[in-house]
Simulated assay, not measured.
Amino acid sequence: MTIERFIQLWTHRYHKYTHIATAHLKGRQARAHFQGVKRGLKKGQELIAIIRTEHFGDIVAAEPISRYVRQQHPDAHIVWFAKPGFAELVSHNPNVDEVFREICVTERRVLLEGKVFDKVFELQFRNNNHCPKCQVFTENPVALERDINVFNYFDYGNLLEVFAQTGGLIPPKTAFPADDQPRLYLQPSHQAKVDGLDLPGKYIVMHCRSNYEPKDWPADRWNQLVHWLAEKYDYQLVEIGLESNLNVKTPAYRNLCGQLSILETAEVIRRASFFIGLDSGPSHLGNATGTFGIILMGALNNFLNYNPYSGKYGRQENALLVRKAGLPCAQLPFEFVQEQVRSVLEKSADNARTVLS
């Protein structure tokens, strides 16, 4: 073994075992905290955990569960487990009493081993229960019993229905029994931030790059679409997301990628005339904020014709799911997408003319 390899090995081990030790410590501290919370509850008042730690589109899709659990347990102290980067999505939810900002599954395992919670609704399965630093997976017993996993989960319904089933809240392969429209709880600070962006009164917001390549549409076709929209219509075009891969030269386009928090992005989407994007987190923000969505989708892995959305996007009352049977999103022809977008925008223009007349 070379000295460089020796240093690399022990540096890796140092970081790994330091992380594990920190996770165990924080897990015990969290256990002590919630034991204190429980001692402060009234007699008969339950302490309930809802676990949906990632990704942000999934947390938005799962929001109706917070209302459903609150309805079923009106007096409970409800704690939502989320990774720190996604905590803002639930921190203002009036149906959630507390957010537990989980750093890894080892921390959660140590916490839950204390049996401090009266009920635990785990809304995820093995692939979301993994810490790469600890190199640890944890299993969801309900998901195991019902055989719900990353290879078949869309066979059980939309994301909300899948999460409710993995949490044991509803029977297998059943519809969600309550209001299934996701909501967001935007605050004045989010509105103030977007006020400061000086956005036009009439714009289309676009999300052109997901965190999972099989869901993406090629950048050159997005470039075509942006230039066509800029030439054909009088909307400004605002791109949101983490990072843009477009090469756009038109004054009608503005890039806000990487400049906003999740809920600030939601406020930008809420004010838009339309949302055009992919099956990814921002499309769930569009569903929750009520902005009409044009969603580019396709066959995904072994799911040939899936629908991740509940509420108005899921029923296509406030969205158009753009896809061709059997084709992945990357293979959707530009002309096909162009025609689908045109149909929505021109129908909107016709409706506006009818109202004015």
Score class of each variant (00 low, 15 high):
145 E>K: 10
146 R>D: 07
146 R>F: 07
147 D>W: 04
147 D>E: 07
148 I>S: 07
149 N>T: 09
149 N>F: 15
154 F>L: 05
154 F>P: 02
155 D>C: 10
156 Y>A: 06
157 G>N: 03
158 N>W: 05
158 N>M: 05
159 L>I: 05
160 L>T: 01
162 V>A: 09
162 V>I: 14
162 V>Y: 05
163 F>E: 05
163 F>C: 03
164 A>E: 00
164 A>M: 06
164 A>K: 01
165 Q>Y: 07
165 Q>S: 04
166 T>I: 01
168 G>W: 03
169 L>C: 02
171 P>V: 09
172 P>S: 10
176 F>M: 06
176 F>N: 01
176 F>E: 01
176 F>D: 00
178 A>Q: 04
180 D>N: 13
180 D>K: 10
181 Q>I: 15
182 P>M: 14
182 P>T: 13
183 R>I: 15
184 L>I: 08
184 L>Q: 02
185 Y>P: 00
185 Y>K: 04
186 L>E: 05
190 H>W: 07
190 H>A: 06
192 A>K: 12
193 K>G: 08
194 V>K: 03
194 V>F: 14
195 D>Q: 15
197 L>S: 12
198 D>R: 13
200 P>H: 13
201 G>M: 14
201 G>D: 10
201 G>R: 14
202 K>D: 11
203 Y>W: 05
203 Y>P: 00
204 I>N: 04
204 I>H: 08
205 V>K: 01
206 M>C: 15
206 M>V: 15
210 S>L: 10
210 S>I: 04
211 N>D: 13
212 Y>G: 06
214 P>H: 15
215 K>Q: 07
215 K>M: 03
217 W>A: 03
217 W>M: 05
219 A>L: 03
224 Q>P: 05
224 Q>L: 12
225 L>R: 02
226 V>M: 02
227 H>P: 03
227 H>A: 13
230 A>C: 06
231 E>H: 09
232 K>Y: 02
232 K>Q: 15
233 Y>I: 00
233 Y>A: 04
235 Y>T: 00
236 Q>A: 15
236 Q>N: 11
239 E>H: 13
240 I>R: 02
242 L>H: 11
243 E>P: 03
243 E>C: 14
245 N>P: 08
245 N>R: 13
246 L>P: 09
246 L>N: 09
246 L>C: 10
251 P>E: 11
251 P>L: 04
251 P>I: 01
251 P>C: 06
252 A>F: 06
253 Y>H: 07
255 N>W: 10
256 L>C: 08
256 L>Y: 10
257 C>F: 13
257 C>T: 04
258 G>Q: 09
258 G>A: 07
260 L>R: 01
260 L>H: 05
261 S>E: 06
262 I>D: 02
262 I>P: 00
263 L>I: 08
263 L>S: 03
264 E>G: 11
